[in-house]
C-alpha cells in the first residue's frame, strides 16, 4: 500500500505531467497496476524500483508508445495516451533510452541532429527541392548538433559511426539528442547506466544546467539511488508494477516497504 499520499504541493494546473490510475497489460501479463503520481513544473522526480518493476514501461506509456489499459497520462493537460508516439515530442517531451545500440550506421553528430525539432513541413519540402532554406535548416541542425557535442566533450567523436563509438559516448550522444530538441519535460531512462563513475558528473551537470536554463521537469529512472538523489527532490518507488511509496527523498528512502522490496541490504 502507498504509505505517503502522492499529493504534491503545487496546484494541479501547474503539473507538468500527471499519471492517473495507469494500468497496463500486454497479452496476459499485467505490467502496471493503478500507477498515480504527478510531476510539477520545474520538479525532478526519481523513479526507483528493482529490475522488471515497470520503470521503463511507465516511460513508454508517458511517451505515448504503450496505450494503457486504463487511466490517463497528461502532459501539460494534453492526454498523450490517445495519440501516436511520434506526436508526443511536440508537447515538449524528450526521452532518452536505457539501451543504445539499435541504430548503428549513423554518426554521433547525426544521431544528435535527429533531435532537432523539424520545422514541418516546410523543411521537408525545402530539403527535397534543395532550396536554400532547406539547406540552411539542415546545416544549422548539424551545426547545432556538432556544437553541443563539442561542448560536452564528444568533439573528437562527431564523425564516428555509432557502432564504432564507445558505449559511454553513445549514451551521451543519446542524451544530447534529447537536449538539442529543447524539451520542457525530460524522461530519462537510466542515463548513467554503463557510464564510468567519473563521467556521471558530466551527466549531472548537463541535466542541472538544462534545468536552470529552462525550468523544465524531469522524470529520472535509475538503479543507482545515489545518482538519482543528486538530482531528484522527490521519489516514486515501484514494486511489481505498483507504486509502493511517493514523497520527498528522505521520506521514501526510510519507507519500510521500499527498504524491503528494493533497497534491501544495500540501503
Amino acid at each position: 500500500m502507498t504509505t505517503t499520499l502522492g499529493a504534491s504541493p503545487q496546484a494541479s494546473q501547474s503539473q507538468a505531467v500527471s499519471l492517473d490510475g495507469v494500468c497496463l497489460a500486454i497479452g496476459e501479463v499485467d505490467i502496471l497496476d493503478s500507477v498515480t503520481f504527478d510531476v510539477a513544473e520545474g520538479e525532478t522526480v526519481g523513479l526507483i524500483g528493482a529490475n522488471g518493476s515497470g520503470k521503463s514501461s511507465i516511460l513508454n506509456v508517458m511517451s505515448g508508445y504503450y496505450s494503457p489499459t486504463a487511466g490517463a497520462v497528461r502532459v501539460r493537460g494534453h492526454d498523450v495516451t490517445k495519440i501516436r508516439a511520434e506526436r508526443v515530442p511536440r508537447y515538449g517531451v524528450g526521452r532518452s533510452f536505457q539501451s543504445v545500440g539499435a541504430i548503428k550506421d549513423l554518426t554521433v553528430r547525426e544521431l544528435i541532429a535527429l533531435g532537432v525539432e523539424p520545422a514541418w513541413p516546410s523543411s521537408l519540402v525545402a530539403s527535397l527541392l534543395g532550396l536554400r532554406a532547406g539547406r540552411s535548416a539542415e546545416r544549422s541542425a548539424l551545426d547545432r548538433a556538432g556544437a553541443l557535442a563539442d561542448e560536452y566533450g564528444l568533439g573528437q567523436f562527431i564523425g564516428v559511426r555509432l557502432d564504432e563509438a564507445p558505449y559511454g559516448v553513445r549514451k551521451m550522444a543519446d542524451l544530447l539528442r534529447v537536449f538539442v530538441g529543447e524539451p520542457s519535460v525530460l524522461l530519462l531512462d537510466e542515463p548513467a547506466s554503463g557510464v564510468a563513475k567519473a563521467d556521471r558528473s558530466a551527466i549531472v551537470d548537463l541535466i542541472s544546467q538544462w534545468r536552470e536554463r529552462s525550468g523544465g521537469s524531469v522524470v529520472l529512472v535509475d538503479h543507482d539511488v545515489a545518482f538519482v538523489v543528486r538530482l531528484a527532490s522527490r521519489l516514486v518507488a515501484l514494486s511489481s508494477g505498483r507504486v509502493v511509496a511517493v514523497g520527498p527523498v528522505d521520506h521514501v528512502l526510510r519507507d519500510d516497504a521500499v527498504v524491503e522490496s528494493f533497497l534491501g541490504s544495500s540501503a
Binding site: 500486454i26 497479452g27 529490475n51 521503463s56 508508445y65 533510452f97 539501451s99
Partner: peptide
C-alpha cells in the same frame, strides 16, 4: 526484434 530491457517490442 529487440527485447532489451527498457524498450521491449510493442504489443502485437
Amino acid at each position: 526484434t529487440f527485447s532489451t530491457a527498457g524498450r521491449t517490442v510493442r504489443p502485437p
